[in-house]
């Protein structure tokens, strides 16, 4: 018994060593700045990181959006005022991209406005169904949890190339259909089917992540609530709608917001899979930003920065709505 106490004491000494070593320094610092300002001293390292890696890039982006030329260093870029925003926002009718000066930007916006709701609803629905299945005591449950999560660990480029191999004219899907005596199709050459596959592939690639979050939420629901419902002879559907869904609400809110933000930012899989085509059928906002800022020569950093700031504003809007809903949910 005394030996165990000694070990605990040694452990305590080791753990508190840095604090004891820093004590004279902290005491001096406290005398210097005063006890009321000490919280700021502790926050300073994180504040510096946020300033350097979050706020400074936003500020640089704003500078880029207000300047022209294809030079990278802000000092070498002439001030052009709102010229870049004027190009992006010059439109006779915002619902008709063809009437806009930056028609591809508005096509990308239009595509995103269709892609995001369908992809998010599809993603949350499929992830919820998968989580509900994986929450039951099925044989091989651990294996299936791994299977659903596996695509999340793959590089987006690998995901895109794999699906390109499946969907191309001479791909695996057409091979299987031909073997079954069914007609194939050029899946990625038709705008509608390419759009469908863009949604399908992104859901396939990311659903594992959301499934895990929802599964954690399901497992946090107390078992006795379900037992009580069983004793009251509640049907499975009634149990799901009256117990599971309401208790999952806070988790679902987080999942929805994460899913929306991720969906708006979709780029890598689609860039490799379709390049935004056919035509501009699967071009989303981030690809437009990439094309304008990096893929074409000369690079129009100003236009790309302006478009990304507009995208940022939309994401801030989504986050504000999430915070509002979250607050309402917490209040009752």
């Amino acid at each position: 018994m005394p030996a165990r106490l000694d070990v605990a004491e040694i452990g305590h000494q080791i753990i508190t060593l840095p604090a004891r070593a820093m004590e004279p320094l902290m005491a001096g610092l406290q005398r210097l700045v005063g006890i009321k300002r000490m919280p700021w001293v502790f926050l300073l390292p994180n504040l510096v990181a946020v300033l350097l890696f979050c706020l400074l890039p936003v500020f640089i982006n704003i500078v880029f959006s207000l300047t022209g030329s294809d030079r990278l260093y802000p000092a070498e870029r002439p001030f052009v005022g709102t010229a870049n925003y004027d190009i992006l926002l010059a439109c006779q009718n915002y619902l008709d991209p063809a009437s806009c000066k930056a028609d591809l930007f508005w096509r990308a916006v239009q595509n995103s406005m269709i892609f995001v709701p369908i992809q998010v609803v599809g993603m949350v629905t499929v992830s919820t169904i998968a989580a509900l299945c994986l929450n039951r005591s099925l044989p091989g449950r651990g294996f299936f949890r791994g299977v659903f999560f596996f695509p999340v660990m793959l590089s987006p480029v690998v995901v895109a190339y794999t699906w390109q191999w499946i969907l191309q004219r001479n791909g695996a899907l057409n091979g299987i259909l031909s073997w079954a005596g069914l007609p194939g199709s050029n899946w990625l050459a038709d705008p509608q089917s390419a759009f469908f596959w863009a949604i399908f592939v992104t859901i396939w690639a990311h659903m594992g992540f959301y499934t895990v979050i929802i599964l954690a939420g399901l497992q946090a629901i107390p078992k006795d609530v379900y037992e009580a419902a069983k004793m009251d002879s509640a049907s499975n559907w009634r149990t799901f709608t009256a117990i599971t869904l309401p208790l999952l609400k806070p988790i679902m809110l987080v999942v929805f917001v994460l899913c929306i933000i991720r969906s708006v930012q979709t780029f890598d899989e689609l860039y490799v899979l379709t390049g935004g085509g056919p035509g501009s059928a699967t071009m989303l906002i981030v690809q437009y930003i990439y094309e304008v800022g990096f893929a074409v020569q000369p690079r129009n950093f100003g236009l790309a920065a302006s478009a990304s700031l507009l995208l940022g504003l939309v994401l801030i809007l989504f986050t504000a709505v999430q915070m509002l809903l979250s607050r309402k949910s917490n209040n009752g």
Binding site: L188, A189, A194, G279, A295
Partner: peptide, 15 residues
């Protein structure tokens, strides 16, 4: 000509 190259791809991507 097939649509796979000029028809199926968007943007400035080389294919």
């Amino acid at each position: 000509m097939p649509m796979d190259l000029w028809g199926a791809v968007g943007g400035s991507a080389h294919r």
